[in-house]
């Protein structure tokens, strides 16, 4: 083996060692910088305020590279980071009005480049979850939430955990496919309270 080749081998080993969790290999063998360059070229001049939609935060970055299967260390890091960022309601009450929560669950608009900034905005929970029995138009990307509060005996601690889940799904399950509604400031505190009530109010159709 000649010296140059040894040096080459050593630097390959070094690169493998410093690339976190072998994420480079998991990204299909293309360097993240190359992907970034293509992304830049795909959104050359985003409208004011939209660049943040394109850029990834650390959690999105790790979940993308690991295809939602973070290493043990990354899992722990995401959990800690996302947990620390959860903001609970100042008044300690996580339950709003279930009737308003139903709207949050039903509405699928808001935040698209085709939407008006002042138009209705919802969590589109029904896109992914079965909720009230009477609503037949529900998606299956997430588990059924039918009888959610009833199954949990309407316990206060369960309602608090659910508020947290909706505020930041990844503070409970890193790389969950569910959006981080509160963390990403997509839904307001009131909307999260209302949809938590939709799941937890005994009078809500979810529990009927």
């Amino acid at each position: 083996m000649n010296g140059t080749f040894k040096l080459l081998l050593a630097s390959v080993a070094l690169c493998a060692a410093v690339s976190p969790g072998g994420l480079w290999a998991e990204s299909g063998g293309v360097a993240p910088g190359v992907v970034d360059a293509y992304v830049k070229g795909t959104w050359k001049t985003p409208a004011e305020g939209w660049q943040a939609r394109i850029d990834q935060d650390e959690t999105q970055r790790i979940c993308s590279l690991s295809r939602n299967q973070p290493s043990k260390a990354d899992f722990a890091a995401i959990l800690a980071r996302e947990k620390a960022s959860v903001v609970m309601p100042a008044d300690g009450n996580v339950l709003g009005k279930w009737e308003d929560g139903e709207k949050v669950a039903q509405i699928g608009t808001g935040g698209q480049f085709s939407d008006s900034a002042t138009g209705p905005r919802g969590g589109n929970c029904y896109a992914c979850h079965q909720m009230a029995r009477r609503e037949l138009s529900y998606g299956t990307l997430g588990p059924s939430l039918e009888d959610y509060g009833k199954i949990r005996k309407f316990a206060a601690a369960e309602a608090t955990a659910t508020y947290t889940k909706i505020y930041n799904a990844q503070s409970i399950l890193p790389c969950s496919n569910m959006p981080r509604f509160g963390h990403n400031k997509f839904l307001s505190e009131q909307q999260i309270k209302d949809v938590t009530a939709y799941l937890f109010d005994p009078a809500s159709p979810v529990n009927k």
Partner: peptide, 18 residues
């Protein structure tokens, strides 16, 4: 390269819905 980038973009999470 384009294939590998396409694959990476397919799995690339971003924006307010992650």
């Amino acid at each position: 390269e384009a294939y590998a980038v396409g694959e990476a973009m397919f799995f690339r999470r971003s924006a307010v819905m992650d």
